[in-house]
Amino acid sequence: MSNTKSLLTIKNLHASVEEKNIIKGLSLDIKPGEVHAIMGPNGAGKSTMGYVLSGRDGYSVESGSVTLDGEDLLEMETEERARAGLFLAFQYPVEIPGVSNLEFLKASVDAQRLARGEEAITSANFLKEAKAACKQVNLPIAFLKRGVNEGFSGGEKKRNELMQMLLLKPKLCILDETDSGLDIDAMQVVAAGVNSQRTEDRSFIVVTHYQRLLDYIKPDFVHVLSDGKIVKSGDASLAQELEAQGYAWLQSEPTEDELEG
């Protein structure tokens, strides 16, 4: 496997939000078809990583490099990264009243197909695909006509994210705490959806606080992110270890000054 070309390579990435350093020397290499879990305590920079990789305004890269399929990701606009195959499933998807889900999905798919030089999909075919995707993630067809995420429950929003992933067929999916706020049934639906999309050339970064989700989406690698960098990597068993121990061990021993202060 080591001969295979990398899909995503992050080298010594430093990034900040509102002049506060959050990512402090992150390195990560992901090959096609791999599933990497990123775990870590609150405030470690897990969500920030997704925002930085997708190019959100206000998140600035100080140093380091990121390539996707050999292309410099950091040079691209947010939408160009998406078209290059990067998909971020949000922890808290935003509501966009007045813009229908279907219109939104069609615009996204059209933009991406155009960018890849593919032929435009006809409305009829698209509707067929969208309906199938709805079914697969257990969302009523009527949701296609509603405003994007408008009035959706937490679980419905997550499934809507998954549906977008099914339609956009990205190369790299970043699932940002997709399990948060889901009950066990909903989580299984999401996991099944993700698993159905696992292919030889599609990779996943599964960001999660708990090991629970990883029972359903089996990672090839588990990384512990703490204070903006990866402090430990291992296989799936590391997740279990973390579940048992928590993250407290990550905190360095307090100095005497701190104890007194």
């Binding site: 606009e77 998909f87 007045g98 939104f104 996204s108």
Partner: peptide
């Protein structure tokens, strides 16, 4: 930003959002 992460260009996204604002 959400629209852009799905590959929609900034200008197209603006039009969509504006229209959505009225479409409601």
């Amino acid at each position: 930003y959400y629209l852009q992460t799905r590959g929609v260009s900034r200008s197209k996204a603006q039009v969509m959002l504006n229209f959505g604002f009225i479409n409601e």
